[in-house]
Amino acid sequence: MQISIEISLYPLQNDYIPPISAFIERLKSYSELKVIGNTMSTQVYGEYETALRIVNTEMQRTHQQYPKAAFVMKVLNGDLSPNE
């Protein structure tokens, strides 16, 4: 089953761009995912269990590096990625 995830990271610190960029780049490093970013959020597409496992791993990694960070996430059934 395919899944679409919309996720936003809000590091609660003054220098917030580096943690966001690092999180997105780590997600992009997984060949199992399609990752599309924009100025408001990042969209992740892939197989349900795999995508959630990877996002969970990378969220935990972010929290270990930046303890004061909030994630907002929407999870939708199916691959709703834009046609390219």
Rank of each mutant, 00 (worst) to 15 (best):
I24N: 01
L80V: 06
P18W: 04
H63F: 13
E47R: 08
S81G: 08
R53Y: 05
A70P: 03
T50K: 13
K74F: 01
A51W: 02
T39E: 12
Q43R: 13
S81T: 00
Y10V: 15
E32G: 07
T62A: 10
D79V: 05
P82Q: 09
Y45G: 09
I36F: 08
I36T: 10
I7A: 09
L33W: 05
N38M: 14
Y66G: 01
T50Q: 10
A69S: 08
G37L: 02
Y45Q: 07
M73R: 10
N38A: 13
Q60Y: 07
Q60M: 10
L12P: 10
E84G: 11
L76H: 08
K68H: 12
I17S: 12
I17R: 11
Q65V: 03
I5L: 08
L27V: 03
E25G: 00
V55P: 02
Q60R: 15
S4N: 04
R26A: 07
S81K: 08
L80K: 15
L12H: 13
P82R: 13
N83P: 06
T39L: 14
A69D: 02
Y16E: 09
Q13N: 06
Q64Y: 04
T50D: 05
V44Q: 07
P19K: 09
V35Y: 12
I17M: 15
Y66K: 00
K34S: 07
Y10K: 12
R61N: 06
P19A: 12
P11R: 00
T50Y: 05
V72C: 06
M40C: 00
Y45L: 06
V35Q: 12
T39M: 15
M73G: 13
Q13L: 07
Q43W: 13
D79C: 01
M1Q: 10
N14D: 14
Q2A: 05
T57M: 11
T57V: 10
I17E: 15
G37S: 14
S29D: 04
K34H: 03
S31E: 15
E32V: 12
M73V: 11
E58D: 05
Y30S: 03
Q43A: 14
